[in-house]
Design a protein around this nucleic acid. Structure first.
Length: 197
DNA sequence: ACATGGATTCGCT
DNA sequence: GCGAATCCATGTT
């Protein structure tokens, strides 16, 4: 059962935590893929100096202001794609970054995706780190705008009943963001080996 | 029009 | 620990 739009309408911090343990599913021509989300980060509106929305709406970040449950995939450092899911109320910017995942199904597809990149090394931790996750899962910026609450080919399913502790920490790579960099808006499953390092 | 730097990752020092 | 890869948004000329 796919998560509905109402799940993503909550504030970014809530959704970032709730997404841990959920499964991101994708049906491709080469087969099905499924990953367990183990690490996320929350990005908010103009009050969050680490967010792409800190300068307001631009051509690139426009979907962050739109309806929840839509993908926002952008290029970072000219090389990697980073995948986010728009969250919160329409009109207010917000998104959750998928930072790391454990591949449960479709490892061969993920391996092939990584082999096609000259910048990423193939190892057993295929989707560890936001750039590697997006590459392994086959998402690039052309996926921006895709609604994952209505598509039959890409969606997220609720987490299984499982026990895990959530660790909160400051977000990675946002030292430029002054006081916003101190916010503990990175969340990951304690002791999970697929959390990024 | 140009310079700067980033929600990253890898390889070399 | 540092530099390279090189797209996109911002700020300056």
């Amino acid at each position: 059962m796919a998560l509905s739009r109402s799940f993503f309408k909550h504030d970014v911090v809530t959704v970032a935590k709730e997404l841990l343990g959920c499964h991101f599913v994708r049906k491709t021509a080469k087969g099905n893929m499924g990953v367990k989300i183990v690490e996320t980060e929350a990005y908010s509106d103009a009050t969050d100096l680490a967010s792409h929305a800190r300068f307001g709406r631009t051509e690139r970040n426009a979907v962050m202001f739109g309806p929840a449950g839509v993908l926002y995939v952008y290029i970072i450092y000219g090389i990697y794609n980073l995948t986010n899911i728009v969250c919160g109320q329409e009109g207010k910017a917000g998104a959750v970054l998928i930072r790391s995942a454990e591949i449960m199904e479709g490892k061969k597809i993920a391996q092939a995706n990584i082999e096609n990149s000259k910048f990423t090394k193939l190892n057993e931790r295929l989707a560890t780190g936001p750039g590697k996750f997006s590459l392994a899962f086959g998402l690039d910026r052309s996926w921006t705008g895709t609604d994952i609450t209505t598509s039959a080919d890409i969606y997220i399913t609720a987490k299984m009943i499982q026990r895990f502790d959530i660790i909160e920490s400051p977000r990675v790579g946002v030292g430029y963001a002054k006081y916003s960099a101190c916010l503990p808006w990175r969340f990951y499953i304690k002791n999970n080996p697929y959390v990024s390092k």
